[in-house]
């Protein structure tokens, strides 16, 4: 493996809550170049957000190693680090300073891209969830990354604003890579260049999108069969 490769090496990530034991990754390995555009298709509730958070550095695996080199982003549109009692502008300026990014430029870009108007200078606790998402997404676009981490969807808000986000993100991908975990084959096909399917806690790399889509649909069908079986037992 090259020095610049990023990703997951023999990673195990599991949660134990009361009697529930969930294994998200089970000695899973997926290494790729930071400039790759990797899409991982995963079923609902299979742990996609946990995997995105691991690569973003928000958590650690129980075993194995997450390799991070170059500038790896927070999950696109992440708004969890904002503080509600501070204004959008103050939140952005502080994060820009901590990221060693040009504060004034970042703040001006976010103000314009988020389309928040005067609300940009009001406390976040007055924001709707859509406004917070726009602020988070604008921040993601304001600071360049070598690899963007995407959890689920690109963009937020109204269809027109989401389209604007997708255009901005596609422009970013001209000079950057991407690690995208999603349950939407349509979005995966649009943004991805390499594809994998999350299966039984492991990353299964496929030759192309068609193979990934086929494997993913088989998983979906198996999940539906299982659901029908459980419902059948329940009805009996």
């Amino acid at each position: 493996m090259g020095d610049l490769m990023i990703g997951f090496e023999n990673c195990t990530k599991e949660f134990r809550l009361d009697n529930d034991h969930r294994v998200i990754l089970d000695e899973a390995t997926l290494m790729f170049d930071p400039s790759d555009r990797v899409c991982v298709l995963g079923l609902p509730s299979s742990g996609k957000t946990t995997i995105a958070n691991l690569l973003s550095g928000f958590g650690r695996p129980n075993a194995g190693q997450v390799h991070r080199s170059g500038r790896i982003s927070w999950p696109l549109g992440f708004a969890g680090a904002f503080h509600p009692s501070m204004s959008g502008a103050r939140n952005i300026e502080i994060i820009a300073d901590l990221a060693e990014a040009p504060r004034n430029w970042v703040s001006a870009y976010v103000a314009e891209f988020s389309e928040l108007g005067d609300d940009y200078y009001r406390p976040l606790e007055t924001y709707s969830s859509s406004m917070r998402s726009r602020l988070g997404f604008a921040l993601s676009m304001a600071i360049p990354a070598d690899t963007y981490v995407v959890d689920g969807i690109v963009g937020t808000g109204s269809p027109s604003y989401r389209a604007k986000c997708e255009v901005a993100f596609e422009q970013k991908l001209d000079n950057a890579g991407m690690f995208f975990v999603t349950q939407s084959p349509r979005i995966a096909e649009k943004f991805g260049r390499r594809f994998a399917v999350l299966k039984d806690g492991d990353f299964v790399l496929t030759e192309d999108f068609s193979a990934a889509e086929k494997a993913f649909e088989e998983q979906l069908a198996a999940q539906d069969d299982l659901r029908l079986l459980v419902e059948g037992f329940a009805n009996d």
Binding site: G57, Q65, H67, R68, S69, G70, R71, I72, S73, W74, F78, I95, A99, E100, A101, L139, S140, A142, I143, P144, A145, D146
Partner: peptide, 12 residues
């Protein structure tokens, strides 16, 4: 381990 590996994971 991380220090050697992640030299600049600062972007958002």
């Amino acid at each position: 381990g991380e220090g050697a590996d992640e030299d600049a994971s600062w972007a958002i």
